Amino acid sequence: MKNSEIKALTVEQLKQTLVEEQDRLLKLKFAHAVSPIENPMRIRNTRRLIARLMTELSAKDKAASA
């Protein structure tokens, strides 16, 4: 998901996507612990996507309260 796509999301869509990505990260970590997954870079990419979503969510919250 690109930054421009993230910026276009509403607050509710950001929260929903964030929950989905956190769930995906948890499943990836469990799968990798049991047996190494084919592409471990997916864990890093998912973590970074979660960080971008959280950053945009906090920016929108800050803008709404100001």
Score class of each variant (00 low, 15 high):
M1K: 08
M1F: 12
K2P: 00
K2R: 05
N3A: 04
S4F: 10
S4M: 07
E5F: 01
E5Q: 07
I6T: 01
K7S: 15
K7H: 15
K7P: 12
A8M: 06
L9I: 03
L9D: 10
T10Y: 12
V11T: 10
E12C: 09
E12L: 14
Q13V: 05
L14H: 06
K15Y: 00
Q16R: 06
Q16F: 03
Q16Y: 02
Q16G: 05
T17W: 03
L18Y: 01
V19C: 00
E20H: 03
E20N: 02
Q22A: 01
L26S: 13
L26N: 08
K27E: 10
K27H: 10
K27L: 10
L28S: 01
K29N: 12
A31Q: 10
A33Q: 10
A33N: 07
V34Y: 09
P36I: 01
I37S: 04
I37C: 07
M41F: 11
M41L: 14
R42C: 04
R42I: 14
R42W: 05
I43P: 07
R44T: 14
R44C: 08
N45R: 14
T46W: 00
R47P: 05
R47Q: 15
R48K: 09
R48H: 13
L49Q: 15
L49D: 12
I50H: 13
I50K: 12
I50A: 09
A51F: 13
A51P: 08
A51V: 13
L53Q: 06
L53K: 09
T55K: 15
L57Q: 07
L57K: 04
L57R: 06
S58Y: 11
S58E: 14
K60D: 05
K60W: 01
D61P: 00
K62D: 05
A63L: 01
A64I: 06
A64C: 02
A64M: 07
A66Y: 03
A66N: 09
